[in-house]
Structures are given as structure tokens and as C-alpha cells.
């Protein structure tokens, strides 16, 4: 029994044309049913935070959106493109969505600048000058322009994750997916990454964030989704989630009790 909260947020007027539509997707890893009839619709510029215990399918869910995992049933539509087996559709969706990983996954054999310019030059066919200009602009935005010529191995975890965000933004995506971006970081580095993400959210980027950072969720999210056992159990604005007077789904309550 999902508790659906009425959304009365400021961005209501944009919600008529969703940028991501997910309808009843199912996924199995062998016999293990990871995603069960997950449906979701996300509006442009909306910031959605997905929380839930580990193994609840939240990472698998956002990895389905850019086809790092293949769903077996249901429909996913991103920016008007249906995610089908057609390689061109997959490529197009990947061009429109940036992704940031828990383990950064920077290319260790390339400088920071080359990490950021590789995809725009190879995929968008930008000139080197154009790509480098964009890279410096983005490195400025994430606050580490002086590290451009260094290699990822020479940076701290927080700096690496900020480079990873810049690398994803270099493709000028309409949607950003964050898969536990701060889970592999030392506590004092979490803030610098979250600050970049907040700035990004305020600039109007559509974001789906899988995270355990409740402070971030409360401050930035338009909507919080709680997942468990491959299902969306409950969703609503942060005020709804963090209001102690609201009666939650028992599973949500249990999770919130442990985490808050």
C-alpha cells in the first residue's frame, strides 16, 4: 500500500510534459526479482532522490535508465526516446543523460582535462579548442580548474568525484543520474561534492540521485522516493517524508527510524 502524497510544489506547472517515463518495468538477475512493476514519471528540472535499504533495487533502477542494465519488461522513455534494443536509441539516450558513479570511474590513464574532453570530441564531434574551453568552464564550476593537467590518481576522492561530475556535464546532458556519489568518500569530502550537486540542482538540471545523505535530500529534493524489495513503497516531497507527524508506510517508518 503506497502512500501517495499530493504534490503542491512550486514547479507544478512544468509537470505536464514528463522528461522520463517509466512504466511497469520488471527486471530479474537470474531468479532474483530486482525490480517489480516500477512506474515513475519525472518532470523536467525535477530533482528526485531515491532512498532505501541496500539491495532494494535503487541502483539497478537508475542504471536501467541509461541501459547499463537491461530491463526485461515494461517501458522506459527518456526525453521522448524509447529505450529499445535499437543501438541508435541507446546511444542517443546515453548522449542525453550524464551519470556519476560511486567509484568515480575516471579514466586513470588520461589527465583530468582529457577525461572531460574525450566524450564531447568523440561523440559530439567538437573541436579540441571547443571541448577544452568547455572543460575549463566546467572545472571552474566544480571548483578545481588548477587540477586540469593532473592525473586522477593525483587527486583526492572529493576532487575525483567533482571531475566525474564535470566529465558527465561536458556532454551537455538534459538529465543527470547520480549513483551513490558520496558513499566512497571520506566524511570531510562529502560536503564539497554535495555543494556541487546543490548548485547543479538550483541551475535547473533534471536529477535522479540515489543517496543516503538525508540532509541533501531534505534540502534539495523536489520528491523523495523510498524503494524496498524492488518496489516503490512511498514517495512525496521532503516535507512529507521528514514530518514526524505524518503516518508512513511501516517499512518506510522502520527505515527512517534507523537512518535519522
Amino acid at each position: 500500500m503506497a502512500v501517495e502524497a499530493v504534490d503542491t510544489k512550486k514547479k507544478a506547472d512544468r509537470f505536464d510534459e514528463p522528461i522520463i517515463v517509466v512504466e511497469k518495468i520488471n527486471k530479474w538477475f537470474g531468479d532474483f526479482h530486482v525490480l517489480r512493476d516500477v512506474s515513475l514519471s519525472i518532470a523536467p528540472q525535477e530533482v528526485v532522490v531515491i532512498i532505501g535499504p541496500s539491495g532494494s533495487g535503487k541502483s539497478t533502477f537508475i542504471r536501467c535508465i541509461n541501459r547499463l542494465e537491461e530491463h526485461q519488461e515494461g517501458l522506459i522513455q527518456v526525453d521522448g526516446i524509447e529505450l529499445s534494443h535499437d543501438v541508435r536509441n541507446v546511444a542517443e539516450i546515453r548522449r542525453e543523460t550524464g551519470m556519476v558513479f560511486q567509484q568515480f570511474n575516471l579514466f586513470p590513464h588520461m589527465t583530468v582535462q582529457d577525461n572531460v574532453t574525450l566524450a564531447p570530441m568523440k561523440v559530439r564531434h567538437w573541436s579540441k579548442d571547443q571541448a577544452e574551453k568547455k572543460a575549463m568552464e566546467l572545472l571552474n564550476r566544480v571548483g578545481i580548474p588548477e587540477q586540469a593537467k593532473k592525473y586522477p590518481g593525483q587527486l583526492s576522492g572529493g576532487q575525483q568525484q567533482r571531475v566525474a561530475i564535470a566529465r558527465a556535464l561536458a556532454m551537455e546532458p538534459n538529465i543527470m543520474l547520480f549513483d551513490e556519489p558520496t558513499s566512497a568518500l571520506d566524511p570531510e569530502m562529502i560536503k564539497e561534492v554535495l555543494d556541487v550537486m546543490k548548485e547543479l540542482a538550483l541551475s535547473g538540471m533534471t536529477m535522479i540521485v540515489v543517496t543516503h545523505e538525508m540532509g541533501f535530500a531534505r534540502e534539495v529534493a523536489d520528491r523523495i522516493i523510498f524503494m524496498d524489495h524492488g518496489r516503490i513503497v512511498e514517495q512525496g516531497p521532503p516535507e512529507h517524508f521528514f514530518d514526524p507527524n505524518v503516518e508512513h508506510h511501516p517499512r518506510t517508518q522502520e527505515f527512517l527510524d534507523q537512518i535519522l
Binding site: N66, M99, F101, N105, A119
Partner: peptide, 15 residues
């Protein structure tokens, strides 16, 4: 080569 490297390249849309 860690699998994450391939995933990162894919997520960026590299061929």
C-alpha cells in the same frame, strides 16, 4: 580493467 571503466565509457555514449 575494472568493469566500472567500461560502464563509465558507455554512460558517456562512447562507441
Amino acid at each position: 580493467v575494472p568493469y566500472g571503466q567500461i560502464e563509465a565509457a558507455r554512460a558517456l555514449g562512447l562507441s
